[in-house]
Nucleic acid binder design. Structure first.
Lengths: 226, 226
DNA sequence: CGTCCACTTGACGCGGCTCAACAGCGGTGG
DNA sequence: CCACCGCTGTTGAGCCGCGTCAAGTGGACG
């Protein structure tokens, strides 16, 4: 049985999404029939702060950022979503507004399922419910971690942790070090840490002076293993 | 059919917990038979930062705080848990350490279910799975909100939001105002906001001078409606 | 009446933000 | 091919909010 999403150009978009991976092929086929797809260019905004959403949304390709905007227009990035990440779980229960803006950081696409439909699916499919509980649990853990680090750690430490975080997706490890080609500029890092560009620049330098990290070029960082 | 938790003194501890409220009586009976109970006095610590936990835990009575400790010993409070709140959802999947300390703020009790057992229950009971997804979704929303407010709002605003937050549980509303008898002292408020006692004191005064709030006594705050 | 504890208030220092100037680099157009 | 511009990053000066330290107040309770 060949699965092909009607609205996805790419074949079998479902199977690469961890939420659905544990489902049987017929179950996946049902989901594929329910999904609507939408594509974005870099900078396109899918959803503005405080708009309501009545869909459960899964990132199919590319990368999005979710952020709130301060008074001065500075972006405060909560998440970077990439393939398989989802949002809109609140809409499963109540029609509430999403309190952040969601914007494509590169050419990207999403799959959308109507909230009510997704709610029914979750009730029917044990495995799906469990996958969602798991995903939400780890998101809770991530947020708890961020929240306590904001108060307890200085910017240089938080920056270092961000670098390690990025290196999970964008770095590669040799026998003695981790090499990271920075996928985002200092401003994006600053937005993610909730600080200014200048602070990122200064603290990056501080880490270099500390001997904590090395920089081979503006875009290439070398981190100690661990 | 009378439900009585074997280890709870109080009858029918399960039915007051929203996670289990939607289950049928026989289903509740099963859960009751699986639950272990434990009691705490004020200040008792259930779990220390980075200890592992292999139980799913539900607060049965009283109130707990979950906090991380900074280098200087200052507590950074992530949550106040009260009746029906739960934690340990991460242990459902992996044996990971809980990165915060959990301490009773008053005489309290909890119900514990073995993680594996709880995992099976979630698979079996659709309603339970859905309740958990719902609870985790709203916890995610709470944390997202906290995280963006940390960076974007000054202490006085965050303090005001905390007061409204407290008034949901501890305040009562008249036709023209909300009256809140403070359930925690300034130090606890400071811990929850991640600031110092002194800052809470000063910003409370600032709000009073602003005419934003009024204080009838040290412990009684009057907030405008909404 | 004395002690303790929560809260208050002031003085001061520091970290991070703001503002500003500048350098490097790549792209674009004359 | 060069001049110009915009974007990214760097660096300094000064400011401000919050933390720290310290002294003091007031209320509860023995």
């Amino acid at each position: 049985m060949k699965l092909e999403c009607k609205t996805c150009q790419a074949p079998v978009c479902i199977s690469k999404i961890s939420l659905f991976r544990n489902l049987t092929l017929p179950q996946q086929a049902v989901i594929i029939s329910l999904v609507k797809r939408r594509a974005f260019n870099k900078g396109d905004v899918f959803l503005c702060e405080n708009q309501t959403l009545s869909q459960f949304v899964i990132v199919n390709s590319g990368k999005f950022k979710a952020y709130t905007s301060g008074m001065d227009g500075k972006q405060n990035v909560l998440y970077h979503f990439s393939v398989g990440d989802f949002f809109g779980q609140n809409a499963l229960f109540d029609k509430v507004a999403i309190p952040y803006t969601i914007e494509a950081m590169e050419p990207s696409s999403i799959c959308m399922i109507d909230s009510d439909t997704m709610g029914k699916l979750i009730k029917q499919e044990h495995e799906l419910a469990l996958s969602i509980v798991r995903a939400l649990s780890s998101r809770v853990a991530y947020l708890e971690n961020e929240l306590s680090s904001v108060h307890q750690e200085t910017i240089d430490i938080r920056l270092l942790r961000l670098l390690y975080d990025l290196s999970k997706d964008y770095g590669y490890q040799t026998s003695r070090e981790v090499i990271l080609r920075l996928p985002i500029n200092q401003e994006e890092m600053a937005n993610r840490l909730g600080v200014t560009r200048e602070s990122v620049s200064r603290n990056l330098r501080k880490l270099v002076n500390n001997q904590t990290i090395k920089m081979r070029s503006k875009k290439e960082v070398i981190l100690p293993i661990m």
